[in-house]
Design a protein around this nucleic acid. Structure first.
Lengths: 216, 216
DNA sequence: CCGGTCACCTGTCGT
DNA sequence: CACGACAGGTGACCG
């Protein structure tokens, strides 16, 4: 059993973009940047996390000469430095060095979701969290259903990928705030938080818009 | 079939550390430095040979600013220049550029053994040789023995790694001189060769003392 | 564009 | 059990 995961406040926050993060009894105004359901490769031996291009370019610093270091804080205050680079060969942004340690430490599995947040008042300060994948439903038997163990992660994973656009609590494991889904569009919204007027991006759709349907 | 491999004199020499090398009918006093059973990676697509740290630091020049060029002679007198460097990340010494050419030219395979020698009177002059791995024994059928092709190289490789401490000829392919095995200890011995008194290191144990037994 | 090279990275194993 | 060594990898780069 896992204990005390993710950044999420016990009760669902009222806003998409800002909520409180309790770290060591200190409360931080945190902006949700994006999240990504982990692919088998993300948690496998490739030791890398592919950051969806849109999110990378929206939120992560544009490293001039490739290969930078991004450091995130987790819910315990522990720092997680990751090597962040752009792979020309695959035209993709990735977290590499350090990522496998995080996966192991948090015992992440395919279908689990990593969350990226940042400090509202200091966008250089970034946070990483995660939540368990949705519990297994008595899943749809595809094609007759002979496959067993090999398939199970994929099934969870796919189920996770295109989850409905609105959900709050789900099997007691999900209390993520995702309201206005606007696929493909980036909306700005103004909000007042901690006495500060902020203009925020609100593209918190799931990170794999086309889904991780990489298998045949 | 291979023709005329290795440096070894047709009859086993009497000394561990010095023996004659016949190159183009010239005889050289040659000191055995060390040898290494080749791993699959050493002969694979990584195009590099890992030099066990002890041997590298004992025998190869300490390159000040990393990345030097080491040139060896083979039994035909051909020169083989290799780039020699230290990889900080893995804390290991490697031969890179040029190595794959040697592997290809000599048709080396995993389990084969590369030999490094040097001129007794001119230690800058170094020689490279090789011998075939030990012929496959009607090997121990592990767990029932269903595996075939995939296993074969590994089996050779492991069989090679922890060969007995005393062997001279073996299946007509091995006439390496290895007498006093003193694992973990380095003995010095004095010998008189070509009218010259020499004091020599004698740590010619196999390069992977623990063996590459990484499989379960 | 492709193969070789280079400088990294990490899991595993033995000590 | 922490740590060194290294086998087996990677992407970037260059000719």
């Amino acid at each position: 059993m896992e204990t005390s995961p993710t950044f999420h406040h016990p009760q669902p926050p009222s806003s998409t973009v800002g909520f409180n993060l309790n770290i060591h009894n200190q409360h931080f105004p945190i902006q949700h940047m994006f999240e990504k359901p982990l692919t088998p490769s993300d948690v496998g031996k490739l030791n890398r996390l592919v950051i969806p291009k849109q999110h990378a370019e929206n939120y992560f610093p544009t490293d001039q000469h490739n290969a930078s270091l991004l450091t995130f804080e987790d819910d315990s205050g522990k720092l997680w430095p990751f090597r962040y680079s752009y792979w020309n060969s695959s035209q993709s942004y990735v977290l590499t060095k350090g990522w496998s340690r995080y996966v192991k430490d948090k015992r992440l599995d395919a279908g689990d979701v990593v969350l990226f947040h940042r400090h509202v008042l200091d966008s250089d300060r970034m946070f990483i969290g995660w939540r368990r994948r949705a519990a297994e439903v008595a899943a749809q038997p595809l094609h007759g259903g002979a496959q067993v163990s090999e398939w199970s992660t994929r099934v969870f994973y796919d189920a996770q990928a295109n989850y409905p656009s609105q959900h709050l609590t789900h099997a007691g494991e999900r209390y993520e705030m995702v309201d206005s889904y606007q696929r493909g569009a980036i909306a700005t919204r103004r909000l007042r938080l901690f006495g500060v007027n902020l203009e925020c991006l609100d593209d918190s759709e799931p990170s794999t818009p086309n889904g991780p349907s990489q298998g045949g």
